[in-house]
Structure formats: C-alpha cells, structure tokens
Design a protein around this nucleic acid. Sequence first.
DNA 1: CAAACTTTTAAACGTTTGTTTAAATCACCC
DNA 2: GGGTGATTTAAACAAACGTTTAAAAGTTTG
Lengths: 213, 213
Amino acid sequence: MKEAPSSTLSTEERIREAARRVFLEKGYDGTTSRDLAEASGLNVAMTNYYFRSKEKLFQLTFQDLHRLQFAKLNSLIHLDIPLREKILRLIEAEHELVVENPDLPLFIMHEMRRHPDLFTETPTASSPYPALPDSLFARQVKEAVDSGQIKPIQPLQIIMVIVSNVHYPFVGRASITHSLRMTNEELMEVINQHQQVIKDMILGYLFGPEVQT
Amino acid sequence: MKEAPSSTLSTEERIREAARRVFLEKGYDGTTSRDLAEASGLNVAMTNYYFRSKEKLFQLTFQDLHRLQFAKLNSLIHLDIPLREKILRLIEAEHELVVENPDLPLFIMHEMRRHPDLFTETPTASSPYPALPDSLFARQVKEAVDSGQIKPIQPLQIIMVIVSNVHYPFVGRASITHSLRMTNEELMEVINQHQQVIKDMILGYLFGPEVQT
DNA sequence: CAAACTTTTAAACGTTTGTTTAAATCACCC
DNA sequence: GGGTGATTTAAACAAACGTTTAAAAGTTTG
C-alpha cells in the first residue's frame, strides 16, 4: 500500500478527478480512454489498472456526481424548520449548487436518459429522491394543505417547481446565449435578477401575496 | 432526377427520418454511421452518397429539430392578442410540444452545449430566439410593466419561467422516474396535474391573484 | 435497345476505439 | 542491499469507427 503526500493527489485520485472533469464536459459517449489519460497526465493503461474499464470508472464518477446533485436537497427536506423557510432555503441551496456546478444537472439528466442501465443503485447507499415521500417536508406540505395554509399541491410538485426554475437557465444556457447572442456574463446577470422572481413567484403562489423573502 | 411514390418515402427522406430518430435517441456522440444505416434499412454508403458525412447529416437534422422546438413559440410571440391570453397560449403550446416530442428539449440543450461549433446559423433562416427582443410580446410586457398592470419583469424572464416549468418534468423524466421508482404513466399524471399549477402560479404572480383560466 | 447517368451494393480503406500485454521502474522489508 | 510485490510505461491487440472504392443494378433518354 502507498500513501500520497498530503498536498498532492494519489494516482487513483488524480484519475478520478480527471474523469470527473472529462465526463462532465464530454459525457460518456463523447469521452475516450485517451481523453481520460491525457486529462490525468497519465497513460491509458493506468485507468484500467486502477479501475477495470471506462464503464466502471464512469459508474463511480456518476455516482459521485449524482450524490452531489441531490445532497443538499436531500438533507434540507428533513430539517426541522418552518415550511416557508424550508422552501426558501431549498431555492437558495439549488441556486448555489448550479452556480458552483453549472454543468451538473444537464450531465445527470442526459446520462440517466441515455444509459439508464449503467445505474444499478447500491442498495445501502442513501438514494436521494426516494427519501422525499416520507420526509418531514412531505408531511409539512400535507399538513399545510389540509389546514388551508397553502394551495393544494403535492410535495413532488413543489420540488419540481423549485428545481425547474432554478436549474433551467443553467441547463439551457448554451442554447439561450447562442440564440440570443448574449455573453455568459449577460445571462448570469439575468439569472441573478431571476432569483428574486422565482422566490416571489413560488412563495406568492403557495402562501398568498404577502411581503416576501 | 427521381420522384418517390406519394405513399412511400424517397431514399433521401428515409435517411433523414431515420437520422432524426437515431440522433434524438443516442445523440451525436452516441450514434455510429452503422446505426444510421440500420435504422434506415440501407447500408452505410448511402448516407455518405446523399449527405457527405455523418456530421453534415447531423447538422441538417439538428436544424430541423431546432426549428421544431422554437416554431410555435416564435410565431406566438408576434400574435396580436392580449398579453394574458398570450402567456396562457405559450404555456399550452410548449406543453403540447413536449408531449409530442418528449426527448426534444434535452437533445437540443445537450447538443448545443456539447457541439456549439456545429451550428453555423444560416443567415437567412428564421433564427428563433433573436426575434424575442423586438417582438410584439416584448413590447406588450414592457407596456404592461410601465402601466403597473404586471410586476416588473423582463420579457426573457417570462419566457424562461414558462419554458422552465413546462419542459423540466420531461427533460428530467428519466431522472425522476428512476429515482422515485415511478412509472412513466404515474409521472405523466403528475405532469398533467402540474399544468394547472404552472398556469395559476405564473399568471397569479404576474397579474395578481384573480380567478384563473 | 443501347448509351449515359443515377442509385445501390459489398467490400475495403486507414484511424481510432477500449483493453491487454510484457517489460521497466519504483517502494518497501528482512 | 538484494529480492519481492506494487506501480508505471510503451507497445500492441482486435474490434469498431467514419469514409471511400469500384462494380453491379436500375433508370432515363435518344
């Protein structure tokens, strides 16, 4: 066994880190084993020495990224805070996520549609979404609906509305900037403005038109 | 020159139609020339006889699909109808589009991010989005904002809200159904319910909480 | 019907693909 | 300090890739 110095990365970590970057950029189909080798600064044999194949390396990489995508959401829905505040924090958490990982949602959605077979969920691993139906969030929504505090709506629908509005400008950003001939900076400005609209719209719809945020 | 019988398709059309199906399903990177040949029932030489390369065939296919994606939106924004009705019809048009072409938005967004170089917009062709800034829709929004009829918002933001909410459940449907262990039918039921939420939420936000639709 | 042209085919081209090999280099232990 | 196992390398493998070839089959036109 061999340990890497603390400041630099072990070979295995270098490969995983490179795989993350390359797969995120080019997708599974668009990535070659030589792409991975070049990105890690090693040669093609190393990838197969540490991970048995391109496919296996991709599965690990995807699992990491899939967890990253749902980690915040998955912990927030169980938090013991008022529903209204929880929704606000969900919006902010998802915004933060896509600002830090702008390519993540498109990657996840593309790969899950294209290679659904590659994702054999590890049974023990915390599967992200399935937690929703029996989360505190779900119970809070049902109670709020029953007591007439918010409009009739399912928990999943609220999540969909949040994720849709927050993620979409990033998911479609190549399409938007190209078509409208905007720069990335111009789009980012629109997106920042848009954040407030999303918050007001969602909270306003659910709780009625009070003073927001 | 040769004309195809009306009931059946010409070879060129067969190839284009097959290319549409295959590229939509597998993407550019995931499609091989032999996939295309098999899907059209011909052999690999035919694709290069009628179109000069896989790349050229993809460019044509993508152009078609890109137009399809924005055709309805692009004609609706110029229609001379009241703003409120226009927004409602935009929501319904986008919903119809994704119900009929559930894979289209994800395909467009993935390919535009992955191969932005492949899309050299034909100068004369009706480019879809750029029409927005000087559309009747944009003027209607600005007037409605100035007159205090709706909340301050940019035309692009309204489009983003509509498209986000309507498209996202389809774009992420592999991810949603897989993670929540739903069937496609169950998701479709949620999506249908969701339509009304989207309408109420958007119109309610912009115009205030009157009686809807 | 025969020449001229278009369409279709099967086979092959050179390259790139994912993966493996076998030898070289490294790190560690008695 | 030499032997042992882990790591790294360059080279090679067969298969699949996008594309092209050259000849066969079909169509058109005089």
